[in-house]
Design a protein around this nucleic acid. Structure first.
Length: 345
DNA sequence: CAGCCGTGGTG
DNA sequence: TCACCAAGGCT
């Protein structure tokens, strides 16, 4: 019994029934893999179902509007994935006769597709012998073989790539890849792995040396910085202003309320003059109805967000998109803004 | 290549 | 509570 045999045998008895495992359609497999990047199955599943329904094939996706795609992607995070997916769909539709590339090199060349996703698509859709190396694989291999190289170092990544490829069952790459990831996801978990029922524990270096909790090793901690965002909900009873974010920084291409960003965490009283200086409220009478605060934590930022709910007699002329309050949910908003608007309207 | 890019679950 | 981190990739 190889480690792959054990994993596949375990998988046969423990696999979840997931929709992208019941198809050989490269488009649907690609869609699922993009959605699942840095995303839990439970979180990505409803998005996959919605996308597969709205865009059952690559042609349909290639003709979609960016706003439509971003609206479907709303709440999933890492919004560049959605834009890269559109770019790739259009490229394949327009320059490759709509035919999804069927070899590793060409799959890897697609925008938004890196080594992991290329190996996943190549093996699941085309049965090609490429080992996936994701967070699960890092964890399983580092524990089973007792590898102490940091998984986020160049040296470590290279080492685990080679090791994963060596362990791969080249006769059954698709099943092997599904099995090793499912095993890592359900049994060999980051915390409290179920070593008591693990079929590999006898020969697992980390288990035998009681170092399960110490592996895999990850170096460096990223520093979390603060940002201070002041969003203005300007409302005349019928309409509000919104705008589309640009394609730099967070929340690329999503919509937001008129924004003032400050370098420091200044008080509400000190923000009011800034609001009054803003083009949309210059020389206007307005009433500040309510201020709400929320700290929105990203992986690498703490966003200190304040919403200023301002009532005004008549919407001024301004370089914003004026929409009906009742239509607010037609637009893709970042999660904190979506939650705020959802509590208002 | 180190920093950037979301959201939500977990212990 | 809070650090960790999940089927990573881009620049």
């Amino acid at each position: 019994m190889t480690i792959s045999d054990t994993l596949k045998n375990w998988y046969k008895n423990n696999a979840r029934d997931l929709p992208w495992r019941n198809t050989n359609d490269a488009y649907l497999i690609w869609l699922s893999e993009i959605i699942l990047q840095q995303t839990r199955v439970e979180q990505g599943l409803p998005y996959y179902l919605a996308f597969a329904k709205a865009f059952p094939n690559l042609q349909k996706l290639s003709k979609a509007s960016e706003d439509q795609v971003l609206k479907l992607w709303q709440g999933l995070g890492y919004y560049s994935r959605a834009r890269n997916m559109m770019f790739t769909a259009q490229q394949i539709a327009n320059h490759n006769n709509g035919i999804f590339p069927n070899n590793y090199k060409d799959i890897l060349a697609l925008k938004g597709v890196g080594p992991y996703t290329a190996a996943a698509i190549a093996s699941f859709a085309f049965g090609l012998p490429y080992a996936v190396v994701d967070g699960n694989v890092f964890r399983i291999l580092s524990r089973y073989y007792g590898v102490e190289l940091p998984i986020n170092s160049t040296k470590g990544k290279k080492y685990f790539e080679v090791l994963a490829q060596k362990v791969l069952d080249i006769e059954n790459p698709a099943t092997h890849n599904q099995a090793i990831m499912e095993f890592g996801s359900l049994l060999c978990k980051p915390k409290n792995p179920d070593c008591n029922s693990c079929p590999l524990s006898d020969s697992c270096v980390a288990f035998n040396q009681k170092r399960i909790a110490l592996l895999p090793i990850k170096e460096k901690k990223l520093k979390i910085q603060n940002r201070y965002l002041h969003y203005i909900l300007l409302n005349d009873g019928k309409r509000i202003f919104i705008e589309k974010r640009d394609y730099s920084g967070i929340w690329k291409g999503l919509y937001q309320l008129p924004l003032i960003e400050t370098v420091e965490n200044i008080t509400v009283d000190n923000v009011i003059p800034l609001i009054m200086e803003n083009e949309i409220l210059k020389n206007q009478d307005f009433e500040l109805k309510e201020v709400r605060e929320k700290i929105h934590k990203l992986t690498h930022r703490n966003l200190h967000i304040r919403f200023y709910w301002i009532e005004i007699a008549e919407m001024p002329k301004a370089n914003y998109l004026s929409i009906l309050c009742s239509d607010w949910n037609d637009y893709a908003f970042p999660q904190p803004i979506h939650q705020f608007l959802s509590s208002i309207f």
